[in-house]
Design a protein around this nucleic acid. Structure first.
Length: 227
DNA sequence: ACCCAGGTGTTTC
DNA sequence: GAAACACATGGG
């Protein structure tokens, strides 16, 4: 079977929660705003994303129809602060088109039946087929927009597990994710806990600039309990 | 001036 | 697969 070491993900979650408290990760007015933020924050500091979201709100265009219809120059100007703005304009439009094809979301917290009907893996593949949605953005969307269980295998998560000397950490995003996800007992986690876990990891990551920082962080001394 | 940030797609081997 | 590259602004 699998010789690789088990990861006590739940213990790690509780350790982080006890020391860092709730993170209030990814606040937003609507699910749509979370999705737009997920694309804009690709390889970009969150502060630059807030600038763009504020500009879009001020222009009253933070909705799928408006973004899809805006002239290139206008959209570029609104999201310029997030970098890669020409590329991200294409990505935003691709997502908005997909979003519009789902039909109207009558209320912000209403997830369309079309989406509710499919299982997690099918929805993930569907999201990955959207231009500009790679593995990490797909997991952001699953977790924070569609309330599905997901482990976001981002840079901070990788650094955390490297600090913990987890064996055989795959190099690719997908490999890393598939190394960790099966070790989470999804039935024992609520969606808010999945969300909080990612928030805690990234909040910790922001405070750790160097490998030395990580080695002095709260997770450094953590030892996985024996199975 | 340099490095990094809540990555993705394309090309090439 | 996996490595190299383009994409780009803003803050430390």
């Amino acid at each position: 079977m699998d010789e690789r070491c088990l990861i006590d993900v739940r213990g790690l979650y509780e350790l982080l929660l006890d020391h860092m408290g709730p993170t209030h990760w990814w606040p937003a007015d609507t699910r749509f705003e979370i999705a737009i933020g997920a694309i804009l924050t690709q390889n970009t500091a969150w502060g630059n994303v807030e600038t763009a979201l504020d500009r879009m709100k001020a222009a009253d265009v933070l909705n799928a129809r408006s973004i899809a219809d805006l002239p290139d120059e206008t959209l570029w100007d609104l999201i310029r602060s997030t970098g890669y703005y020409r590329q991200k304009a294409v990505y935003l439009r691709a997502f908005c088109q997909w979003f519009l094809d789902l039909g109207e979301w009558s209320h912000d917290d209403d997830i369309p039946a079309l989406v509710r009907e499919v299982d997690d893996e099918t929805l993930r593949r569907e999201l990955l087929s959207i231009r500009g949605v790679g593995g990490e953005t797909a997991d952001d969307l699953l977790l924070y927009v569609f309330d599905r269980p997901a482990f976001i295998a981002d840079r901070y998560a990788r650094r955390m597990f490297e600090t913990l000397d987890v064996d055989d950490l795959p190099k690719s995003y997908e490999g890393f994710r598939r190394r960790v996800m099966p070790q989470i007992d999804a039935d024992a986690w609520s969606i808010p806990e999945f969300q909080e876990f990612h928030g805690l990891i990234d909040e910790l990551g922001k405070t750790c600039r160097t490998p030395e920082d990580w080695n002095h962080s709260i997770v450094a001394g953590y030892r996985m309990p024996l199975p």
